[in-house]
Design a protein around this nucleic acid. Structure first.
Lengths: 204, 204
DNA sequence: TACATTAAATAGACTGAGTAAATAAATTGC
DNA sequence: GCAATTTATTTACTCAGTCTATTTAATGTA
């Protein structure tokens, strides 16, 4: 991930640099009043460079989530590699574990900007859309996995949405709990457990 | 709804006219290759007129859904008008009934373009975002209603997402069932019932 | 018939996101 | 020094969406 440019011109920027510049400006002005040109100017590169690091303006919000999503994908793929099929309950369990494990990545870092600023995200259409797009990706991923764990696809989809909804509300509670907060994993566990039991009760 | 222009210049277009022109073009070319200017030219009006009828290009997909959403809002508002509070189960029941009632509107008309073309919507980011935005509106509406029916807000949100997910998959099945299909309400009932029982079992 | 009012259409200019292609700059390996 | 490679820059472009000012087509009234 980091030893990839032994050869060409060294990068003059990075996702993190641009993200920092963007967040500063979003707070100084607002998301809507900050253009991509503003961001790259603050970061000391040209406008076009922005698109070397992000596909869209709204993507600066989702660096951490996208990383977690990639990890989730890997975790789930690893679980179903060998061709053996899981029972519905163990499939659900695997998803819950994978979600909690991804959340573990966040526990030591600071709370992502997206979480502390979720009012901003809730109110700006374009941002909300970019968030929802991600959740829909996650939903598709989980639905597919559960459906290969022998849940009917409709039930798999419902369970996926329910899990995501539970995870979102857990993350919101976590973020608003302030400095004295437990780790996100604790919130997640409390929040995912009922969904697990709802969709695949223990004695099944 | 129709006796509103006894006074000024009569409308030269309508949501339906523009929608028809747009859908024709989306099929001839594609969504991405069809500009708003193309649509209005086909409809015989100027580009600016488009924005008298829609806020965004993607909104042409959601005329029926937006109508249903408005109706759902009214139904739910009517249910909780009198200040009396509902039990969780009766709140869930009210939502299920409201959803089924809104679906009843669609049963005689043709299947909305959005449903027959859901592959197009799944694959184009902007469209998916506009769809998800609507579902998130619906989710907020239902969450609020359930939460006033004495469900804890986290549980209310999860239930709302689960209901919507169930409704979406029912609508997809309905659309793909072809000409010999039952009414959407039948699909919906089968699909919503388990969610209802999952989140508020009969003997509670 | 003239005139005020009103609703809608039109024209045109503008901002800013995102795309694309061609070129320049900075590095490594040979 | 030269080729290859990676990234940045420049420039031009399309199109969505906003805004404002103007015009058109109707109605009601005197």
């Amino acid at each position: 991930m980091s030893a990839s440019h032994s050869r060409g011109r060294p990068p003059a920027s990075s996702q993190e640099t641009l993200q920092d510049a963007a967040f500063d400006l979003f707070i100084e002005k607002s998301y809507a009043d900050t253009s991509i040109a503003d961001i790259t100017q603050r970061a000391g590169v040209s406008r076009a460079t922005f698109f070397n690091y992000f596909d869209a303006k709204s993507d600066v919000f989702w660096v951490e989530l996208d990383r977690a999503l990639g990890q989730l994908r890997e975790l789930l793929a690893a679980q179903m590699a060998p061709g053996e099929t899981l029972s519905p309950r163990s499939g659900l369990l695997a998803v819950v574990n994978a979600l909690e494990s991804c959340a573990g990545q966040l526990q030591r870092e600071q709370v992502p900007f997206a979480l502390t600023q979720y009012e901003m995200i809730g109110s700006i259409n374009e941002l909300q859309a970019s968030a929802l797009n991600r959740f829909s990706l996650i939903a598709r991923l989980i639905t597919e996995f559960l459906s290969e764990s022998n849940l009917p696809v409709g039930r798999a989809r419902a369970a996926a949405y329910a899990l995501i909804a539970a995870a979102i509300s857990a993350a919101q509670e976590w973020a608003s709990a302030g400095t004295a907060r437990d780790s996100l994993q604790v919130y997640l566990r409390d929040s995912l457990q009922p969904v697990l039991e709802g969709f695949a009760p223990e004695g099944e």
